[in-house]
């Protein structure tokens, strides 16, 4: 199935007969239009109007070489809330998330059009200091990626690269961040030992602690629980609830229950398009589009 999706994205939008069209035929309506590459507008719920958006995505397009992966996405991420990105595999959720802190700059073939803005500051304008931008955004990856150093040094990495030396400041950062990430009690006696010796769930919480240690305005979580067992997943979901309000969180997830439990708003993506966007309750209980309903109830594909 994933193979089909990838192929669909890689075919130029104008002349796509290909495997995607049989999707469209089966699902009908919006998906059909998307598959044919017809112009298409996101169904954004009225409840999204008048929100205080911290992150604004404006007509954002992205290409990997010749293949377009994101098609004209536009939406706002409300401040202090949890917004979930859902959609079938390969639809561009990670790509969109990585575009927010410009991690895609690291891939030579990537080209973009459109813009995003963080608290009103353009992200893609010429002359934006990418490093300063990334310091305002925290990111947690699908697979835990602790650095090969002590737990302590992992947490204060952002401070270290900013040249902070004051031990009392660093100690405080470590304690608040690890408490914030719900890891403090487990590791407070072995902060000096290597982070690579933690369990997978602990490592992921350490990565969250590392992300919030930089006091970001937005926290990007890309399937943070996909490598974890249900108990570790539960802890991270609790953590997301605790971090809500203090941080704006944009989370990618394949787990519908998780999206429903943890998020305030949900965006549904398909083949690089943002299909429907609204409050989580509405998306799951009362979606405007049949396709969204099919997907969130598991009838999709």
């Amino acid at each position: 199935m994933q193979g089909d999706d990838v192929a669909a994205v890689q075919v130029p939008p104008d002349d796509r007969p290909g495997p995607a069209s049989h999707h469209g035929a089966r699902l009908g309506g919006v998906f059909d239009a998307v598959s044919r590459g017809e112009p298409f507008a996101t169904d954004t719920h009225a409840a999204m109007d008048g929100q205080a958006d911290i992150l604004e995505i404006k007509d954002f397009n992205l290409w990997y070489g010749e293949n377009q992966a994101i098609f004209k996405n536009s939406f706002g991420v409300p401040e202090g809330k949890v917004t979930a990105l859902i959609g079938p595999s390969g639809c561009g959720k990670s790509t969109l998330l990585r575009s927010v802190n410009r991690m895609n700059d690291l891939i030579a073939s990537v080209r973009i059009a459109g813009d995003m803005s963080l608290s009103g500051d353009s992200i893609y304008a010429l002359g934006v200091d990418v490093i300063e931008l990334r310091k305002r955004i925290g990111m947690v990856f699908q697979k835990p990626n602790p650095f090969p150093m002590s737990i302590y040094e992992n947490v204060v990495y952002s401070q270290r690269i900013d040249g902070v030396r004051d031990k009392t400041v660093l100690d405080e950062v470590v304690e608040t961040s690890l408490r914030g990430a719900g890891l403090w009690d487990e590791v407070k006696d072995r902060l000096g030992s290597s982070a690579l010796r933690l369990s997978g769930g602990q490592q992921q919480r350490l990565c969250i602690g590392r992300a919030i240690a930089g006091e970001p305005e937005v926290l990007l979580l890309d399937e943070p629980c996909s490598a974890l067992d249900p108990i570790a997943t539960g802890r991270i979901e609790d953590l997301i609830q605790e971090l809500k309000g203090q941080y704006t969180i944009l989370i990618v997830t394949h787990n519908m229950q998780q999206a429903q439990r943890a998020s305030d708003y949900t965006a549904f993506m398909y083949l690089g398009r943002l299909v429907e966007y609204g409050p989580t309750q509405d998306i799951f209980v009362n979606p405007h589009l049949k396709e969204t309903e099919d997907y969130v109830t598991g009838r999709f594909g």
Partner: peptide, 25 residues
């Protein structure tokens, strides 16, 4: 692993900082 480099960049490290603190060790 590239994931380590990405983790460092995501924290706002420059290329050289990433190399010096993560890649080289």
């Amino acid at each position: 692993p590239n994931s380590m480099r990405e983790g460092s960049y995501a924290c706002g490290a420059s290329k050289w900082q990433t190399i010096r603190r993560i890649v080289l060790p």
